[in-house]
Amino acid sequence: MNKRSILLISHGHFDNNSLEIIADDITHEFLHPVELGESHLDLNEYYDPTRRQYDGNKLLKFLDSVSKPNSLKTIGLFGVDLFIPILTYIFGQAIFNGRTGIASIYRLKNEQYGLIKDDDLLLDRFRKVVIHELGHTFGLVHCYVPSCVMRSSTYIEDIDQKKIFLCNKCRTQVESSSHIY
């Protein structure tokens, strides 16, 4: 494959098998190879003690400024609780039509909601969040098709309702813009 890669950078510990599954999903949906990487970024300077959360805006800006020029897109994977100033929390965020996105697994865990731990469900949710944020970097807006992965999700129940795939309309949009990439 002669296409530019999408970079998945783990900030914190993530199971390798899970990362490879996510990489396969990305290749399947966006038809680009995926490279996995790790970062040992000190997250303390992104921590907001009053909110006891990490500033998603600052993280996104930093990752965008250091992303490798030869990679097509970069998605930062986090295990911490992210926020942006206007919202109480976020699952992820991306620069629309840009090169960078972030996704956090923290709020996707059943345990955060007093439910029994479910690793399979957790991985499913994380796969969807990563694909969703990556979709925004490809210029996809929120989709009204209930099963489309680009449907807006503000609760984990919303994430569970949708599938991991792009709907035909969103897929066509990505494919029609593939010449740019």
Binding site: N57, I84, P85, I86, L87, Q93, A94, I95, F96, H136, V141, H142, S152
Partner: peptide, 17 residues
């Protein structure tokens, strides 16, 4: 007047189309 608020809202609504 806060840039971070403007940016966050901008991103949020752009993603909503």
């Amino acid at each position: 007047d806060e840039e971070s608020v403007r940016d966050s809202l901008y991103n949020w609504f752009i993603e909503d189309g």
